[in-house]
Each structure stands twice: as C-alpha cells, then as structure tokens.
C-alpha cells in the first residue's frame, strides 16, 4: 500500500476532505467513499464513458483520473444535476424519449450531454452524435438518446427565449 495523502474535493457543491492513496481512481472515491454510485464502471480503459463526471467544467472519465490529480477540483456527478423535486431537463427528456433501457450508461450519458449543451446550446443531430461519441450504450442504439438531447436543447432554448 502506498503513502496516503490529504485531498480536498468539491463534489456537487459540498467540500470533502479525505485521506487516500494517490493511486485511488476518482471513480472509486466518488462511489465508495462519497456514496455517489450514479457514475458507473464499464470498461476501465476510458472507452465507454459510464464513469463520466464533470470536473472543472469539463466532461472527464473518472476511471482514468487519479484522485490525487483531482485534488482541489470541482466535480459534478449525476446526483448533482437535479433532485427528485427538480429534475434536470435532460433527466426528463431521457425518460420522455426512451433514451435508456438498463440505465447503466445513463448517468454518464446525461452528465456528458449536460456539458455538451452548455458548450453548444443548439446542436445538430450530427453534432450530438459526435459530441456523445465518448459514451457507449449497449441497449438503445443511441437513436432515442440523440432525440432526448435534441429535445432538451430545444426546451432549454425555448425557456431562455421566453425569459
């Protein structure tokens, strides 16, 4: 076992101080120490994106980040995007358009889509497919995921236009 180090993380707005081996993978820190089991482990080689979280304003694959690298970072997981009383638009449109089946890829998928829409609020279908290519889904064939993201974009844009 390696030497442990003091690490601080801000996750979903809450600051955590932990003592961990630097080699600990961020996905394990989130899931096992902080109990945030929304992000999942799928491939472990940064291909599937099931572990996607938002770190310092970027979508990252938490299976390929050491917790030491994340020291001082601001992280948002699926648990921080919406609440049971106030779902994120994407959480609603994924359900509305049947953008999920087994649900395993869904937290990473929605977390990634959230960042994509911040960067490109009005994407084309092609841009959604390209922008979501770091997240694998084995169930849906993506068609309804793409639909859900486009629907969320137009809903968010309409809301913004109304305000």
């Amino acid at each position: 076992m390696g030497k442990k180090m003091q690490i601080s993380l801000t996750v979903n707005g809450e600051v955590h101080y932990i003592l961990a081996e630097p080699r600990e993978l961020l996905i394990h820190t989130l899931r096992e120490r902080l109990g945030l089991t929304g992000p999942h482990i799928g491939c472990e080689t940064s291909h599937c994106g099931a572990c996607t979280v938002d770190m310092n304003g970027r979508s990252v694959k938490a299976c390929t980040v050491f917790v030491a690298q994340a020291d001082g970072a601001e992280i948002t997981t699926i648990e921080g995007l919406g609440s049971p009383d106030g779902l994120h638009v994407l959480q609603r449109t994924f359900r509305e358009h049947h953008g999920l089946q087994c649900g395993y890829c869904t937290p990473g998928m929605i977390t990634r889509a959230h960042r994509l829409l911040i960067e490109n609020p009005n994407p084309t279908e092609e841009e959604v497919r390209f922008g979501m290519a770091g997240n694998l889904c084995r169930c849906t064939g993506y068609q309804n995921i793409v639909k859900a993201i486009l629907a969320a974009a137009s809903e968010m844009n309409a809301k913004e236009a109304a305000e």
Binding site: P22, E44, T45, S46, T64, F66, Q69
Partner: peptide, 26 residues
C-alpha cells in the same frame, strides 16, 4: 511526468507501466 494521463493511466492500470513517482504537471 503525467499530463492528461490517458495514455499512461490505462497502462498503469493494466500494470504494463510501473511508476514510483508520478509528477503531475497540471
């Protein structure tokens, strides 16, 4: 040294690369 780590970390996870001291350049 480690930058983004997406080449090195998978190699370390597969234990095909072993590193005593990791120097993060961030």
């Amino acid at each position: 040294v480690i930058a983004g780590g997406h080449s090195l970390i998978p190699m370390m996870k597969l234990r095909m690369a072993s590193v005593g001291h990791l120097v993060d350049l961030q």
